[in-house]
Design a protein around this nucleic acid. Sequence first.
DNA 1: GTGAAAGCGCTAACAC
DNA 2: GTGTTAGCGCTTTCAC
Lengths: 342, 342
Amino acid sequence: MSSSRATLIQVARRAGVSLASTSRALHGTGASPAMVERVRAAAAELGYSPDATGRSLRMKRTFQVAFAVADIGNPVYVEMLTAIHEVLAPHGYRVVVMSTGQTVASTVDLVRSLGSGFVDGLVVSPLRTDDTLAEAIRQAPVPVVVIGRSLDGIDSVSTDSAAGIGLAVAHLLEIGRRRIGFVNGPLDTTPGAARQRGFDAATAHPGFTGEHAETERADDFTVTAGLEAGRRLLARGDLDAVVAANDLLAIGVVRAAGELGLTVPGDLAVTGMDDTEIGQVFRPSLTSVSLGSAERGRLAARLVLDRVGDGDGVDPARQSAVGPHLVVRESTAVASKEKSAR
Amino acid sequence: MSSSRATLIQVARRAGVSLASTSRALHGTGASPAMVERVRAAAAELGYSPDATGRSLRMKRTFQVAFAVADIGNPVYVEMLTAIHEVLAPHGYRVVVMSTGQTVASTVDLVRSLGSGFVDGLVVSPLRTDDTLAEAIRQAPVPVVVIGRSLDGIDSVSTDSAAGIGLAVAHLLEIGRRRIGFVNGPLDTTPGAARQRGFDAATAHPGFTGEHAETERADDFTVTAGLEAGRRLLARGDLDAVVAANDLLAIGVVRAAGELGLTVPGDLAVTGMDDTEIGQVFRPSLTSVSLGSAERGRLAARLVLDRVGDGDGVDPARQSAVGPHLVVRESTAVASKEKSAR
DNA sequence: GTGAAAGCGCTAACAC
DNA sequence: GTGTTAGCGCTTTCAC
């Protein structure tokens, strides 16, 4: 650390011109070349760099955007954060990481805290949503973009994870599996509810050529919870495939299968969701439904960027969506039970 | 979004008291109970929330701390970020995520940009360091804590990854391995250089009971680079163990071994470093040297918190350290070549 | 094209 | 204990 920094007024004095001219010269707005030259020199000599706080107070813009999720350690959210940062940084925006907490109430608090004006906008991906949260977001003093679920009058980036589960079920039927289990996470979360709908729809559909379908619910979207739920599910019935609601649960299911001496994909085919790196690296590598985490992050960042720019409140809410797609890997490979060494 | 927010002056008018009293009442500093009551009511009616920018300008504190790394997607940095956030948030500090870029020059730019005063402090974990960066950090207008390498006159949290590699080598010798390879990342990075030193020291040490030791260098600390380096290393010689400079490289090495029909740990024992979740989930689960990523994040956050609090520049630089420790898992299990199903 | 001056919202002297 | 006032650093009218 060192002595306190130079201010604009000092640069002005040093250059022997007015404060206003100094500001203009530094911004290149309506100043003569001579003036610009003079001010630049003075600024350089003093090692001047503009104060973000003074600027923010005057302009009523912080050049900051918040990204809030329940668990920033989750690979899906990390991908979103990275993508958001990549979009915003080149536009001069900083990214502030915040936590929604686990409950709707804490998420509402987070949204209300935007009233303190420390960011120009928010990208949030709430695990749980209700009317109070939707209303809080509509009343928020800065633009908010929701990743996860489209809500009336709110900018959002959604994906169809129900259809994604449908993709997984269809794939399993296609490779000849008939007795399909589903390991879901908590039903009171947005993704949990959607994925359950997807599984129920896919297996109740007239086109469902399977013989059996049943669900087991894990306490959380983690490997450990998936292992436990997988044990319960596999103990109950004679299945030849399991759809898991995300990659971590899928890994848990593969483990549970291993405990029973079942091979994957030989005895049991397993699919995940989110197409995470951890699923790609896992052996057997996971067939997974990509929900385009990075892409959703990018889109959300662009939406919020449009709003914070200037013309805000004019355009109606925009609902954006990213389609799911299946990535087939070893965990549902149709080949023989003997996995080739590649 | 809605109408613009209430200011302190409006609360003051509403309560029929002065601006100063309003501020004091809201902060609970030297105001009568009656005053507090009155002001609170007025604030509530107006839905007042204090403006962070005005506050920051006046107090010369932003209540923000930056965390900067080259790649926020790296699991190690994610753990640090999570830990830092957990320490700072309860103290009312927000965390701003920034990028150091890949080069020393871009990191220096980042440090210089702190002159804009948008954060009260910085926690940075640079991949590469030199004197210009060290000097820039010493001159920085806000407290900086470095995670990774201790530098003169700079607060830092380091770990001894060289000793960590020593732990891995010792473990391999202990389980009877004698011909040991090392897959390192780029040597011009702080971790790459340290880990090479560690391997060279461990294998040159008089206590080294092995017969052979050789190094192959990967282009990057990733799975793909590890796969390629692993292929080169295994093609060259007859090894019974490989030490990898991090978990991702280790996964690449296990893959390369698989391609050659080598079993892990039967034919080849493999160790990683960083003790990441991905290494724990991988099959075979990775024996890994933990460098306490979360703990380093926590310590760094506490250091920066001490500095931003108040008394700054008084205390000398503090060098803090977290010791490495080995976590043994399947990839070096001594048992038979047949891996038990648990 | 340049300068003078107002004022963003807040806290902290300083008087009373 | 309360009120008055200055001023943090900046951008932007407004006059010239």
